[in-house]
Design a protein around this nucleic acid. Structure first.
Length: 565
RNA sequence: UGGGGAAUAGUGUAACGGUAGCACGACUGACUCUGAAUCAGUUAGUCGAGGUUCAAAUCCUCGUUCCCCAGCCA
């Protein structure tokens, strides 16, 4: 095969870029851009676009990707989002060179281009109201009709447009429209509005402008001004490409190629800024960075690594048809990275006290524990052991069913890195609930191995009661109970599918003392439980952890099946 | 019933006229001081009907289904 110079295996966009390079279409240039509107925060769908655009730039010699804020609507956009978006892109591991770009920096240039269009007789000032414009536009199946102002003279248009800019007219009273074709089968071509009057302060240009460009007009100009070669956007803009091309052709300026790909959907979550904003505004989640949110800042707080997200984006591919990726793939990529990088530590989420009856009352000792079996360089640490311990409640069953390998009356198990213990007695309260276990240990098994070679079926994690640190642990499940949150009964919306159990706060957890100086966003594996991340709410007096994702857990699966039947 | 797009295992993707492959999931089993990780295996697919061809997921025809468009949002 001609693997050396074929585009085989590349996604369709990368294949086009490679082909363009081969034919020297763009004089060896590869320039892409990521153009967020600063009206909300980035989510993992944006990560797909970021990885695509910055990825293509990085993969090609001399390639460049611009971070450009598409800030053409002062009513919706805010400075705070600009900074947050920059932080997210940086955290994901991408770099936009010496400065970010802003559409608002091109407003003057865009205005001049508009004047050029008017002078060419290709744009006119229209006095129709928004309702009238809609009416004149026609429908999907019926052509529109010409605006009565369509035939104004160039001089009059020039003068009116200038007065629009000067602020002589109220909001909504006039627009500048392209003169194309009111009968065009593509509605975007029926004399689209290119400037509207908006007496609103812009977060960067202040009161300087009272007319603002529309997306279709602005976006191609931004791309052109920046000499973008491949302008990559999502599928819904496919219908707009004709207009994108038309503007650039009329102006005769640098003409990037617009390419469209399908946006990302993931099961059990929503992926639109509008819906995410609604969850925040309705108080259904804490904020944009709630660890249940698919936002970049939410994922970060949850404990996702940038590496895992980049890897996920690599695996899902790029295509032209809508699809929904199984969230299990995201979680797989997460575990894959965290397994390699997270220090192991022991923590007990739902404590059950264990007293080792034959262990000396006041004795304590330090046992060696491996920090990360996947990383030989991670070293070891000391873990304190004493007579009173906590183990996980679910690691003990008084009447163990088949396939339950953990502790039970009379049964011997291993405490990780410590000793074999055997349960000798179960203490219950008046309600019959188990409050304490008594066990004996075998001193010969110190470190976790029996000199006589006997085996145990199970190894439990534990903490020393006296030495353990108290912690709060927040457990998360999928935000929605349905794969597709929009699958709802008549009259309901996606919020009716919110998972009432998506957050569970465990207040009385114990973690091993080595976690005393764990820093916010620090990631750990709690052995046998999952990956956890220090929440920013954490303090020296109160440690707080988020469960990023559980370990794969066949036993939990067996139980679930049992409960069903 | 206008225009623009798209259909490959349960899911996501590859194959560019020449053996339908990979990953996730699910299910077995091995190993294990994490019921993790790791390893081995099983499962399952070209939207439909015709046509061209020695050969079709790929080319042609006709269907079917799905997505997007009637903001002075992006």
């Amino acid at each position: 095969m001609n693997a050396g110079n074929s585009n085989t295996g590349l996604d369709f966009i990368r294949a086009i870029v490679a082909e363009d390079l081969k034919t020297n279409k763009w004089d060896s240039q590869v320039v892409t851009r990521f153009p967020p509107e600063p009206n909300g925060l980035l989510h993992i769908g944006h990560a797909k676009s970021i990885c695509l655009n910055f990825g293509i730039a990085a993969e090609n010699q001399g390639g460049k990707c611009n971070l450009r804020f598409d800030d053409t609507n002062p009513i919706k956009e805010e400075e705070q989002y600009v900074e947050a978006i920059k932080e997210d892109v940086r955290w994901l591991g991408f770099d936009w060179g010496d400065r970010p770009y802003f559409a608002s920096d091109y407003f003057e240039q865009m205005y001049e281009y508009a004047v050029q269009l008017v002078k060419a007789g290709k744009a006119y000032v229209c006095d129709l109201t928004p309702d009238e414009i809609r009416e004149y536009r026609g429908t999907l199946t019926r052509p529109g009709k010409d605006s009565p102002h369509r035939s104004r003279s160039i001089e009059e248009n020039l003068e009116l447009f200038e007065r629009m800019r000067a602020g002589e007219f109220p909001d909504g009273s006039r627009t500048l429209r392209a003169r194309i074709d009111m009968t065009h089968p593509n509605l975007n071509m029926r004399d689209p509005v290119i400037y509207r009057i908006l007496h609103a302060a812009h977060h960067r240009t202040g009161e300087q402008w009272c007319i603002y460009p529309m997306y279709d007009w602005a976006h191609g100009l931004e791309d052109s001004i920046e000499q973008v070669t491949h302008s990559i956007c999502t599928l819904e803009f496919e219908n707009h490409r004709l207009l994108y091309d038309w503007f650039l052709d009329q102006l005769g300026i640098f003409h990037p190629q617009q390419l469209e790909f399908a946006r990302l959907n993931i099961t059990y979550t929503v992926m639109s800024k509008r819906k995410l904003l609604q969850l925040v505004q309705d108080g259904l989640v804490g904020d944009w960075d709630d660890p249940r949110m698919p936002t970049i800042c939410g994922l970060r707080r949850r404990g996702y690594s940038p590496e895992s997200i980049r890897n996920f984006c690599k695996r899902i591919g790029v295509n032209k048809f809508n699809s929904t990726v199984d969230i299990a793939l995201l979680e797989h990529c997460l575990r894959e990275d965290l397994n390699k990088t997270s220090p192991r530590v022991m923590a007990v989420l739902r404590p059950l006290k264990v007293v080792i009856d034959n262990y000396p009352q006041d004795q304590a000792e330090e046992l060696d524990a491996v920090n990360n079996p996947e990383d030989a360089g991670a070293g070891t640490r000391k873990v304190p052991f004493s007579r009173e311990l906590y183990i996980e409640r679910e690691d003990f069953m008084e009447e163990p069913p088949k396939k339950f390998f953990r502790l039970a009356p009379g049964r011997e198990v291993r405490l990780r890195y410590a000793y074999f213990i055997t349960c000798t007695n179960v203490v219950k309260n008046a309600d019959g609930q188990i409050v304490e276990l008594h066990c004996t240990y075998d001193p010969a098994t110190r470190g976790g191995d029996a000199p006589d070679g006997r085996k145990v079926k199970s190894t439990l994690h534990w903490v020393s009661a006296k030495h353990a640190l108290e912690a709060e642990v927040r457990l998360y499940e999928h935000l929605f109970t349905k794969e597709n949150p929009d699958d709802v009964e008549e009259g309901q919306d996606f919020k009716s599918n919110l998972n009432p159990n998506s957050l569970e706060v465990l207040d009385a957890c114990y973690v091993e003392p080595s976690l005393a100086d764990a820093k916010p966003l620090g990631r750990y594996q709690f052995e046998r439980l999952g990956y956890f991340c220090v929440d920013p709410d954490s303090s020296a007096s109160k440690l707080v952890f988020n469960r990023t994702v559980s370990l794969r857990d066949p036993w939990a699966k067996i139980q679930k099946l049992r409960n069903k039947s």
